[in-house]
Structures are given as structure tokens and as C-alpha cells.
Amino acid sequence: MIKLNNINKTYFGAQPLHVLKGINLDVAEGELVSIMGASGSGKSTLLNILGILDNYDEGEYYLAGKLVKNLSENQAAEFRNKLIGFIFQSFNLIPFKTALENVALPLFYQGVNRKKRNMMAMEYLERFGLKDWADHYPNELSGGQKQRVSIARALVTSPKIILADEPTGALDSKTSAEVMQILREVNATGITMVIVTHERGIANLTRKIVHLKDGIIESIEENDPDKMDFTKEIK
């Protein structure tokens, strides 16, 4: 599903910052992978490249067999819209749209008509127990509810891959556990998932842990989340 060959990325600010120094990584379809590392190690940068939200300088990135390099704006939009679902630490919901409208928005960009859009969005909200919150605006929702809305929004287009950047970063431990449970269930339906985190407890719930340090992959650890004790706090 994902194949990275020698990905390099430098931020050209006041001082050039070489953030990713040759990343090689394969993620197969249906995998549940976490990217772990200290703050500033380049996790978000890597995930943004995976999501075509940012570009890279060197190397090749293949997504679902297609080379993602020098795409036009329109091609990039198509990829993001059809293949990828995003989940962010800060939710990134549109504040003046209701939960339902937020979830339905990706379908708007697919040209799905309003009725069908709202129906599908409602289905996903229902699946995450948010049916009664459909007409509420993001500022009327708790953190956990917001993240569930954004998960619903990420899933509504039935993407091939979900990219989550610190999905539990803004949540308390109980809510974090709930959100992780949902993500694991989503993965169980066959959707590939890459989760960025700096918390061991979160990484422990994934099957493959990629350790990132100073812009290179230090090690890749196989993990069995089912051995985890869910009664224990994950944070």
C-alpha cells in the first residue's frame, strides 16, 4: 500500500533543516503501524508527506502502486479525496459547520448529492454513537466526541488508508483508550492505518512500531497488541 524509497525532506527556513534523511518503509494493505519518536524527530513531517499535504525533496513515494511525485494540485486532491482519510490531534473540524456537515464535506468534493451525502454522514455518526449530536457545532462537543466526528469524516469516503497524527494527543486517558479502540476496529475492517504518536502506550496497541530518531528509522518493532492489558491505563 505504501512504499517509501530514500525519502529526504529539508525545511528551507532561516536555517535549512534536514528533517528526513533517507526514509525507507513498506506498509502492506491492512496493516496497523505506528510511528514513534521524540518531539521534533520528524514524525508529522513524514505523515504529511504520506498524506500528500506536503512535498518531499528526494526519493520515491508509491501510494497504492502509483508514484506520488510532482503531482498537479488536482491529482493530489483526487488522491486525498479517494484514498486517504485524515485524523489530526487538533481535530481540524470546520467550526461553523455542524457535525453532520463536517462529516459530509469530503463527499461534497466527490460530487455526491446532498441527500445521499447527509444519509451517509448520518450512518457514520450513528456508528460512533453521535446520532444525537449531528446538528451540533464542534464547540458544543467534548474532545472525544470531536475526534469521533473526525474519524467519521475520515471514513465516510471509504478510503484505503487512514493517517492519524497524534489522534489522542488532546484527549484524556479514558477517551484515548476509546478512540484507540475505535481505530483498531476500523483497521480490523481492512483499512490500512498509520498512527503517529510519541506515547508508548498508544504504540503498544499497533502491530508494527516504527521508531524514528533524528530523521532516520532507528528500528522497526513487531508487536502484539492483543497481549496488552486493556484494564490498565494506556497513558
Binding site: 498524506g51 499535504l53 494540485e73 488536482n74 486532491a77 483526487e78 486525498r80 479525496n81 479517494k82 485524515f86 481540524n92 473540524l93 470546520i94 464535506l105 469530503p106 468534493y109 466527490q110 469524516r153 469516503t157
Partner: peptide
């Protein structure tokens, strides 16, 4: 910000 979110969700520049 909103424009960034929309683009992430697949909005085309046009």
C-alpha cells in the same frame, strides 16, 4: 485554516 482543511479533504483549487 478552513481552506487547508478543505484541501486535505479533497477540495480542488478550482
Amino acid at each position: 485554516n478552513e481552506i487547508g482543511i478543505r484541501k486535505a479533504l479533497g477540495a480542488k483549487p478550482r
